[in-house]
Nucleic acid binder design. Structure first.
Lengths: 353, 353
DNA sequence: TTGAAAGCGCTAACAA
DNA sequence: TTGTTAGCGCTTTCAA
């Protein structure tokens, strides 16, 4: 036998078997082999043929070539995933949820890091589009963003995670308001009346939502809302949180701080220490997210737990549904949050009242 | 004009222009257009033709279809990246380095999370191979691993990051021994004599290396090596580190701990607290890695800084070199480490001597 | 330097 | 149910 067939036992280790090889081994036409191997067309092929093809495929160690398949079927099996910053411990679990769920459906996520920079994001969207992604998951958080709006308007489905855009799109969000209400009640029950909010910049949709939730919670608990107790960090980082919290402490007397997220809460720890205040003895701190390290901080951080992994899982599931059913699929998934009480909250200090 | 051409201004938004469109617009053959657009063949095409093709491509907004290209050229432009666990803050910067450097060369990294589980890793390698990756970067750390050894023996180049396999492969490593020597000297200068080592499980190559470095450093500083001061955590996590450190504290009197990495150091903080010991007043702690949050811990962690981003950048660069030059490329890159002194180390406590 | 033509591996339309 | 055929978009021979 000439060519590849002659040295199959060796060649199989070097050159991968193609569908043609499988078809030949099974004694059927390549088209038939293709159908037999496709779970969706399983019903249209006789059981005997399917079995023969499957056996041949297994024996040869055949794996479909995604490149050939993509070229013909116009689907790449690749999903573009935009994430602001993996250095924020909130995102890795989200990504992991996305990764596992996509893989369960034979898809791969192509991850790109935006730094929350709208320009970089626009560039990355072009890169991902050039790769012919079948759809996109955006975990980035900027509210107004032309490139994202254009992407949402495009032909491929886009799922938003914990983010609201001006243009509507399928999204997975966490019910932060519920957890924040619990947090405020928890603080009120501990005797806190002056509860500050150190949040992030208003260009992120979570900032707006969480701040609104904070105000609503104060109202619900019968606490006064004082504008001067809300401070905005320039970013959702520990460094920015420290600066913002320091500003707050210099001007106001507070016994409790609701941080915009756990990273800002870490910054608050540092600011309190720098101001000679102890947490929770002098000032209680509550975060949002319950990121992986939250419980290992000193003191362990009391925080509103957002189901990070689930956020990713559901986002991927939603995208898969849209890939399959088009616009008919579900538009929005809402996940519950809950307060996790640890060591950063305690009774309101007397001398700060 | 019939077909696509007639409605180009609209169709360009929906259907992407193909190389054929570009060629037609430039009045050349598709093959010529392909060559004109390929930087490597630029020299073999007349300047005039190149200019015409480039203009046409720009006007039409042409972007090569990686799928068609891959099918023909047998290169996917995709690199498989295996990472143990993004939840460990050490890895995100490494990944970021890989991502940026690959992208600078027109490649994309396909990230897969192994959990340091050899079985899962083997599965993921199959998934990545099925995607026809051009090469691989492995940041996972298990020493003996048949799937990895098989991959290294395969046709695609593999670069190892901070890991040594039994089979040799191009790799990027950090000179941990240097930083660890600095750390031990730092502790000796602070008066510490009983320096323990809370490390990870021996199945990871870093465990073996860092432990050897610890022993060598003790010797260099003229300190005795006591076997019972080395404790192995079951994993490189805070939880496992806490357990291991608690065991150490129950049995030995120590004034300083060199942790196997920063996550274990966090576990040491917790174990010390649980044992009623203060850091650094009673026991000093040194980590390894200088992961992003290290400076935000309380106390801020003194640690051996490993250039995480650079590790990723160099790994990607090394892979690109191998993709281009084959086995001729560099085999190994060694990056320096240095001790970053923060707040978790202080003078040895008298009463613990 | 350019054109012509073939074909990578697969699947979808059509025919039997 | 299965075979046939064509072609996705690109690159790379070969020939001119």
């Amino acid at each position: 036998m000439p060519g590849r067939g002659g040295a199959l036992s060796y060649a199989a280790c070097v050159e991968r078997p193609t569908l043609k090889d499988v078809a030949k081994a099974a004694g059927v036409h390549p088209g038939t082999a293709s159908r037999a191997l496709n779970p969706l067309l399983r019903g249209r092929i006789s059981a005997a043929t399917t079995a023969r093809v499957e056996t041949a495929a297994r024996d040869l160690g055949y794996v479909v070539d995604p490149v050939g398949r993509s070229l013909r079927s116009r689907r790449s099996g690749i999903v573009g995933v935009l994430v602001p910053d993996l250095t924020n411990p909130f995102y890795p679990p989200v990504l992991r949820g996305i990764e596992d769920e996509l893989r369960a459906h034979g898809l791969e996520g192509l991850i790109a890091t935006t730094d929350n920079d709208v320009r970089r994001e626009a560039e990355l969207i072009e890169v991902l589009k050039a790769r012919r992604c079948d759809g996109y998951v955006l975990t980035t958080a900027v509210r107004r963003d032309p490139a994202v709006e254009a992407l949402i308007g495009g032909p491929e489905p886009v799922v938003l995670v914990n983010r609201l855009a001006r243009v509507e799109a399928p999204s997975v969000v966490s019910d932060d308001a519920f957890g924040i209400a619990q947090a405020v009640r928890h603080l009120r029950e501990l005797g806190h009346a002056a509860i500050a909010h150190v949040t992030g910049p208003p260009r992120f949709s979570v900032t707006v939502e969480r701040e609104a939730a904070y105000r609503a919670a104060l109202r619900a608990e019968g606490l006064p809302h004082r504008r001067e107790l809300v401070v905005r960090a320039t970013d959702y980082t520990a460094a920015a949180g420290e600066v913002a919290c320091a500003r707050l402490l210099a001007e106001q007397r507070v016994t409790a701080v609701l941080a915009g997220n756990d990273m800002i809460a870490i910054g608050c720890y540092a600011a309190l220490e720098a101001a000679g205040l102890r947490c929770p003895d002098d000032v209680s701190v509550v975060g949002v997210n319950d990121m992986p390290l939250a419980g290992w901080l000193r003191p362990p951080l009391t925080t509103v737990a957002v189901p990070q992994h689930e956020l990713g899982t559901q986002a991927a599931r939603l995208l898969v549904a849209h890939l399959r059913d088009g616009a008919a699929a579900v538009r929005r998934v809402d996940l519950p949050t809950r307060l996790v009480v640890r060591g950063s909250t305690g009774p309101a200090a007397r001398d700060h009242h």
